[in-house]
Structures are given as C-alpha cells and as structure tokens.
Design a binder for these strands. Structure first.
Lengths: 131, 131
DNA sequence: ATAGGGGTTCTAGTCACTGGAAGGTCAAGG
DNA sequence: CCTTGACCTTCCAGTGACTAGAACCCCTAT
C-alpha cells in the first residue's frame, strides 16, 4: 500500500513515516516507480511506534522496544526495565511542572490584572520577594 | 565584571549568557580587549531571565516580560495574560504526562518482569488489548 | 493535452541551548 | 623574557523529533 494509506492506518503523518524510514525504524519495499509499498507488518511496526511514542518513549527507547518485541525469547524484565526508567523520567517531569504550576498560579492569583502597573509576577522575577 | 562573575551571580552558564546576547536579550558593554563587561543592571536582567525560564516561560515570553518589566506604565493585566496562557500550557502538559504515567504504571505493575517473554507492555504497544 | 492529486528527494528551520575547536589576553612565577 | 594556566573571544556543529517547503516525477481521468 502507498504511504497515505499507511499514514491513515498507523495514525502517523506521511512525513513522520518517511523520517522513520530515514532513521531505520521501518524499511518498506519499493514499487518499480519508486513509491514506497507498505506491507501489513510495516503498518504494524508503525502502529507500534505510534503507541510507544504516545506513551512518551524516545526514539531510542522505541528502537530497543521494537527489538525486544521482535525477539520472541526476550525476558519481560528487560522490557520492564526500559518502561520503569521512562516512568521515573515522567514522574520527574510531572514534579517539575507541578512545582512551576504552583508557583505560577500563586503569582497569578495575587496579580490583580487591571490597568495599574504593580504586579507580583514581575516583582518575583525581578527579585522582590513577596510576603 | 567578566562573564564568569555574571554567570555566578545570575546562576546561568556563560554559554547561555553569550547566547542571550546573540538573540538580543542582554547587551553588555565591551572592554577595550573585547571582553564583555556586565553592569549590575545586566546581571539583574540575566537574573530575571533565569527566574522566568525556571518558571518555564519561552524565550519569546521572556522578551515580552522583560519589555513589560522595563515599562513602568504597563498594565498588570498584560503580564497576567502572558502568565495565564503559560499556566494553561503547563496544565495541558501535566495532564498529558499524568495520562502517560497512569497508562504506563498500570502496564508496569502488570508485567511480572522475570525471565519469561510474555509482557503486557509489549502486548499493549503491539495492539493486543488487555482485559 | 492537461489538470489534479498522488508520490519522490533534498534542504533548512524549529527550540534553547551545548560542546568543541582555534585562538587572543592577562597575571603570576621562574 | 618566557611559560603556564585560567580566563576570554568567535564560529561551527549537534541535540530530538519532526516539519515546511521547493522542485520534480507519476498516474488517472477528462
């Protein structure tokens, strides 16, 4: 099938699929006219990638996961290790963002937001501590 | 003062400060030998930038905020608007990450993580729904 | 013959730095 | 005077994961 069909089925933009081929994640066959010809298994790989990416795994992790997926004798502990490390990374990001949100929402709440110039948000960033 | 002192005081790497000059966020004076010579106000700007960046504002937002900071007759509503939009963006990111975390931690919990090959994490990404 | 809607490659841009190379400057010590 | 070492300078390239766009080819229908 053509790239646009593969794109629809995997839920990935054609551009992204070409990029994935570029970096060796998929290797679709080629028609005589040079068009890519995706097999069912290519689409399956792309779908796998779409799901893994949606879970936030890096391309590098995806490469590892694909290899484990293909290896029917892998140990599930290897997969779990990759997932757990990624999970920790996500937790760290959430913690960072929550800290930002808390500080920022506190500042936003304290800013009256009218025509007057005084503003605790700018005060904070300019180094004037609030009580 | 030299860049390394400015770096220490603002808490930003020298490389980052040079980059900020490149994109016009700071414009330190120059000594006759070509070295940058940071004034107290330059350091203040850098500190402002460090704080704003730590709150997750984009460089573009920082530019806007710096302009508002310099404009003593700004309306606090303008600042609040920038901050609120950024806050919404942060909330979106948190929601995305929390969704990822929930899915992923569920999968990780259900993966026994031993020498056997069967693994719900790969099953999920390969499209085998779990009950 | 041509119009359109596919497909192809290639380059360059995104964001906010960061690493590294090649070289100039300055103060202290031998 | 020379060297050492710690500064400083500029410029180029790379990061991650795409994405925009240009220039061009291919296929089908009218």
């Amino acid at each position: 099938m053509n790239i646009s069909d593969a794109s629809t089925r995997a839920g990935l933009p054609a551009k992204t699929i070409r990029y994935y081929e570029d970096i060796g994640l998929v290797t679709p066959a080629r028609d005589t006219n040079g068009y890519r010809d995706f097999s069912g298994s290519d689409v399956h790989t792309l779908t796998f990638l779409a799901r893994a990416r949606a879970l936030g795994f890096s391309i590098d992790d995806c490469r590892t996961l694909l290899a484990l997926y293909a290896d029917k004798s892998r140990a599930s502990s290897e997969v779990k290790k990759v997932a757990e490390e990624h999970l920790e990374e996500i937790e760290r990001k959430i913690a960072d963002l929550v800290a930002m949100r808390d500080t920022l929402s506190h500042l936003v709440r304290n800013c009256h937001g009218d025509d007057r110039p005084d503003c605790p948000i700018l005060d904070e960033m300019g180094g004037i501590a609030d009580a």
